[in-house]
Design a protein around this nucleic acid. Structure first.
Lengths: 137, 137
DNA sequence: TATTACCCTATCGATTTAGTAGGTTAATAT
DNA sequence: ATATTAACCTACTAAATCGATAGGGTAATA
C-alpha cells in the first residue's frame, strides 16, 4: 500500500512540474490546492529538498521549486526517497538488500523468485516514468 | 512490503505442494521445517482453510492438506487472501476499490495512472504463477 | 476414554502512520 | 532598522498494524 506521504509528495511534485516556470511556490498554496495537511506536506517537501529534488527560498515570496527539469526526475527516485524499497521483500531489493533470517537458501526460495519478477516489472515502469510523464494528465 | 503472514502462508503451501500426495500434515511439522512460529502459522493455515484452499483433519494423524491441485491455485488468490489488495492504491484496486477522498478527479490523477500500470504488470505475473510453479524451485 | 491436533478468543509489545503543536531562522519588504 | 513572511526544526500524539503469545475448547482417532 502506497503511503500518503509518497502520494502527497508525488502530487506536490506534479503541481510544481505543471507550473512550467521554476518560481518558488509556498507550501500553503500546494496544500490548499491538493487537499493536503500543510504541516505534513511541509515535512515531505523538506525531505525532497534535502535530497536534491527541490530547492527552497525563505522569506516573503519564498517557497519550493524544482531543481531539475521534470524529464530528469524519475519515479524510481521519488519512490525510493519517500516510500523506501520498491521490492516487496528485502532479499530482492537492489538498494535496501537484506537477508531473510527464516530462509536457508535464497536461490531455491519460491517467494524470492516471484518477488524478483514483480520487482523487475515494477522497476521497469518506474524507470520509464518521469515527472514529465506524470504531469501530462 | 510483503507481510510475514503472506510469506509464511506461501511457504506452507509450497511445502504441501511439494509433498505430492494429499495426506494431512500437522502444523508443527511445517512450522519446524520452515522456521515459522507455530501459533502464528496456525492462524494462517486456518484462514487458508476457511477460504477453501486447505482442508483439515482433526485428531491424531490429522493436519492440513491441499484441496485443489497446485496447478489450480493461483498466486492472485493467495495474495488477496493473506496480503489483501494487490494494487498499491485503493482507487486502482479490482477487488478492494475505494475512492480517494483527497482526489477531485480520478481520470486526471497522475498517481492513479502509474499505479494502474503497476497493478496490471503485477497482476499479470501473479495470474501466470500457480502454486505448482512456485514449487518447482 | 485418553490423546491428539485442529480451532477459537484475547492480549501483547513494538513499530509505523499521519498527523499536530510550537517554536527558530533567514530572507524580504516597509 | 524593523516587521513580516515562510522555510526549517524538534517533539509529541492517537490510531492502526504486525508478529507473536497464552490459554483454552472441540472433534476425531486409537
Amino acid at each position: 500500500m502506497l503511503s500518503k506521504k509518497t502520494k502527497y509528495g508525488i502530487k506536490a511534485l506534479v503541481y510544481l512540474a505543471k507550473k512550467g516556470d521554476k518560481l518558488p511556490v509556498q507550501t500553503s498554496t500546494i496544500s490548499e490546492s491538493e487537499n493536503i495537511s500543510k504541516k505534513f506536506l511541509e515535512s515531505i517537501l523538506l525531505t525532497l529538498k534535502k535530497n536534491g529534488i527541490l530547492g527552497a527560498k525563505k522569506g516573503k515570496g519564498g517557497g519550493y521549486y524544482l531543481l531539475k527539469s521534470p524529464e530528469e526526475i524519475q519515479m524510481t527516485t521519488i519512490m525510493r526517497l519517500l516510500e523506501g524499497p520498491i521490492a516487496m521483500v528485502p532479499c530482492v531489493s537492489l538498494n535496501y538488500y537484506e537477508r531473510c533470517d527464516d530462509c536457508p537458501d535464497e536461490d531455491t526460495c519460491a517467494v524470492h523468485e516471484v518477488m524478483l519478477k514483480v520487482r523487475d516489472s515494477t522497476l521497469k515502469i518506474f524507470r520509464n516514468t518521469s515527472l514529465a510523464d506524470l504531469s501530462d494528465y
